[in-house]
Design a protein around this nucleic acid. Sequence first.
DNA 1: CTTGCGTCTGAAATCGATTTCTGCAACGCT
DNA 2: AGCGTTGCAGAAATCGATTTCAGACGCAAG
Lengths: 322, 322
Amino acid sequence: MATIYDVARLAGVSPATVSRVFNGTTVTPENERVVREAAGQLDFVPNRTARTLRRRSSDIIALVIPDIENPYFTALARGVEDAARAAGYSVVLCNTDDDIARESDYLEVAVSEHMAGVVIAAASDQSDLSPLLDREKAAVAVDRVPHGASIDAVTVDNAAGAGLATRLLVDRGYRRIACIAGPEDVETSVARVAGWRDVLTASGLPVDHALVEHADYRVEGGSAAMERLLTRAERPDAVFVTNNLMSVGALRALRDAGIHPPEIGIASFGALPFSTSAPTGVSMVSLPARELGAEAARLLLARIGGDRQEPRTIVLEATPIG
Amino acid sequence: MATIYDVARLAGVSPATVSRVFNGTTVTPENERVVREAAGQLDFVPNRTARTLRRRSSDIIALVIPDIENPYFTALARGVEDAARAAGYSVVLCNTDDDIARESDYLEVAVSEHMAGVVIAAASDQSDLSPLLDREKAAVAVDRVPHGASIDAVTVDNAAGAGLATRLLVDRGYRRIACIAGPEDVETSVARVAGWRDVLTASGLPVDHALVEHADYRVEGGSAAMERLLTRAERPDAVFVTNNLMSVGALRALRDAGIHPPEIGIASFGALPFSTSAPTGVSMVSLPARELGAEAARLLLARIGGDRQEPRTIVLEATPIG
DNA sequence: CTTGCGTCTGAAATCGATTTCTGCAACGCT
DNA sequence: AGCGTTGCAGAAATCGATTTCAGACGCAAG
């Protein structure tokens, strides 16, 4: 691979001049011409590793997400990408698979590769962002904020959204409304359960312990949880499911049990991905995933640009559909 | 950020010794102890940029895919990840959004960041892999191989799979079977259309031009194509759809038109993602996405390890379901 | 006591770009 | 003519790790 020195030699100038040509500082038109010509001949591509070492920052942004197979996070990724690319950055995705160890691996990579910044949807409340925060790396939390981290964040109003979803069920006349919650150590799940509970108590409906099932925000977890609910002595007549994938699982469990939605009410936090049938009896609140990503990228770009304000949190709203 | 020199000074040894401690070469147990102690105190993280510059290779693998919102590619990503991580590599995803320019951006990044290797599902037949091939970067094509590229590859037997899907429709008694094809410049689509055509001619069924609609492998493209088919003078009684997302779109178009699947036959190349209803009247062939990714990672790791064989192509089979 | 071998260590070169600092030339102005 | 600008170019330091090379030391064998 040709280096800046090879180009310099062929063009008859110094390496410094070659560097200047590619960095937009002042160079004689004639010199610019010979340098570009030489670079073209040698098929020269600047070595970003060397540049990053010297500049102490690359132009790559890392997006760290817990589940790449969840369409919510991929939509969010599109939002980050669009905003970041428009500003000249490349985005790379890192999938942690809800695993704190993998997450911290990726954070270490991002730090030690001197990436320009990190947008992170944390794997759990126990996620450790100190590798980012201690080194003052530009970083923004999105969707979830680990416990007590002082960091820019873009989140959804989980309690309000959960309330909306639950109310849709209440309004449709269901009385015994269960909840399929996410992991207990994930902030978003805790808030959604709280939103569900508040609406039930405000409506004078029962909130007993047997109505909550915890699962893992995945499809299989959702169906297992629904199966458990169906075996309950006092069976719920409706279920609020706290994320999109578990709703898919829950609906599959119902299908397998031969029960069809208007018979039991379902409300999903997050729209059902790729659904093809009109969701009769399934209520949903939809999340602004892409906007979340775009907003996070904007905050990050500001930080990269030197913004020194106190950390801010932007909260977006969920919107009911159906 | 602490460097190897800071650690060396604190530990009272030379930087070379510090480096050796972190690279497993022979060092006195006592020296190893003081170095680790010093590194811990300073919260030392090796600068991967410097290491990569010197070593001329990092331990990151790039996975370049055309559509991060397609569950097929995210499943494939999981396959790559699992295999690559097991071998000690980190995987970063790059989404090209079917855009050749973005794709070549990412390839340039991968090359000039000296990443260990690249697994690529090309954006189109026109994709230019020369940045990888010219520089002899370890690379494997997956799912799609750009026209005439000499590179290791892992693909699906598209023609055979399409044939299977089409035959499911024929066997169920449909006679006028249309096809919703992908982009004309994507190899997989061409092969799937060919597979469809072959089964029709072998079965003595009509294959007229009006039966093929091209779209973009996305949901909206699929519904638009289905709408066009529905307006045809001689309406098809079944449709073979060449990818999972377009099938979702096609089914939505049918739902909106008030037509329900057994009435018109549907066969999908690739399982419907996140489906919740028993697919009455919808046939599918399912793709081994994860295995594709894992296989590709294995080939790539072999290349990184110095394998110098001629490029190989591994072809996996689609399996009919329903 | 010397020779020889193996193990470990440090000095210094190296990877390839960026950037500071210095120098040179041309120009305008009094 | 003398002097201060201005604009451009090159030499060399720098970023932080790895790795080669040569030297120091210990120990065993002759």
